[in-house]
């Protein structure tokens, strides 16, 4: 935008100015994200032995990861945990988002959203640890129930189980699920609902035929926003699972750092990214189908 530049100042400089402006951030992301990710992909195609990384490219690591029993079981466990967490979180979150969007007075909505987001911003580690304290063998629930005389000895089903991990993660990502659903519900033109009822549908059928489909983009965003971080979670399996129920992130750490096999670890990391990508793409395609269905 130098003054006195010749004709075309604005138009020609538009692209150049934009690129110049975005470049510090872009260069940072390229150097510290794109390049390291590329390195991981490259590593995953090498063999890490005591002498160092080989130069020849091979798919051996992937074969090992995809056919290995431990890794398969671990992938399935990670997928199961994160799928169940996602399902539970989104199902539980939807009515809350619906309530805030449809039943809370407009001037009090941001108060509710603020209340919902606060726990999410408080130390994740401490929140996870609190669940350990709550669900543990000598934890709050067991000691509470025992001191009330409801149970005679500590319940064992609630500690160090997949169920506890799911509970913890569902709590941790609750706000993540509510927000996108809330936003999509807010966007729905209220006269559409009146139109639904005007055309003879009951409140329930109006919800099923109008509100629910229109809020699907938010639901799908919520699914992705919960699924992606939970499948890569490290802290919960470590603390709540007591290290006995590792998930992908724990496995990556174990292979990369404890066994010091960067090539195999990279292959697991890339596999994890592939899983995330595949799930994301499936849901984004679903979303697109929903949107197309709406425009008909």
């Amino acid at each position: 935008m130098e003054q006195g530049a010749a004709r075309g100042r604005f138009r020609n400089s538009e692209a150049a100015n934009g690129l110049a402006l975005v470049s510090p951030t872009a260069i940072y992301a390229i150097l510290l994200l794109a390049a390291p990710l590329a390195a991981v992909v490259l590593y995953s195609l090498m063999v890490d032995s005591k002498v160092g990384l080989s130069s020849g490219l091979t798919f051996d690591n992937y074969l090992k990861v995809w056919t290995g029993r431990i890794d398969q079981a671990l992938m399935i466990r990670s997928l199961t945990v994160s799928s169940v967490v996602t399902l539970v979180t989104v199902l539980l979150a939807y009515p809350v988002a619906y309530f805030v969007s449809f039943h809370v007075k407009p001037e009090r909505k941001s108060m509710w959203i603020f209340l919902i987001t606060i726990p999410f911003w408080t130390s994740y580690l401490i929140r996870v640890f609190l669940w350990k304290v709550i669900l543990g063998y000598n934890g709050v629930i067991n000691s509470g129930l025992m001191s009330l005389g409801i149970i005679g000895e500590p319940l064992t089903i609630i500690n160090y189980s997949l169920g506890s991990m799911i509970m913890t993660l569902a709590h941790a990502y609750a706000a993540f699920a509510i927000l996108p659903i809330f936003v999509s519900l807010e966007k729905i033109d209220r006269s559409l609902l009146e139109a639904g009822q005007d055309l003879g549908e009951s409140k329930l059928m109006t919800f099923i035929r109008v509100t629910l489909p229109l809020s699907m983009p938010g639901v799908i965003a919520a699914v992705l926003i919960v699924f992606i971080p939970t499948i890569g979670d490290y802290v919960t399996p470590e603390l709540i699972g007591g290290g006995k129920l590792p998930m992908i992130a724990n496995r990556i750490e174990a292979i990369m750092l404890k066994q010091n096999d960067k090539a195999l670890g990279s292959a697991i990391a890339v596999t994890a990214m592939l899983i995330v990508t595949v799930v994301s793409v499936v849901f984004l395609l679903l979303n697109r189908r929903f949107l197309r269905g709406q425009s008909k």
Binding site: V40, A249, V276
Partner: peptide, 22 residues
Amino acid sequence: ILGLIMLPMVLPEMIVSMALLV
């Protein structure tokens, strides 16, 4: 470019940290 900048939002932190670490 913007997608790359926003990518860490949807990438498991373990992968970001391992990639940086190596």
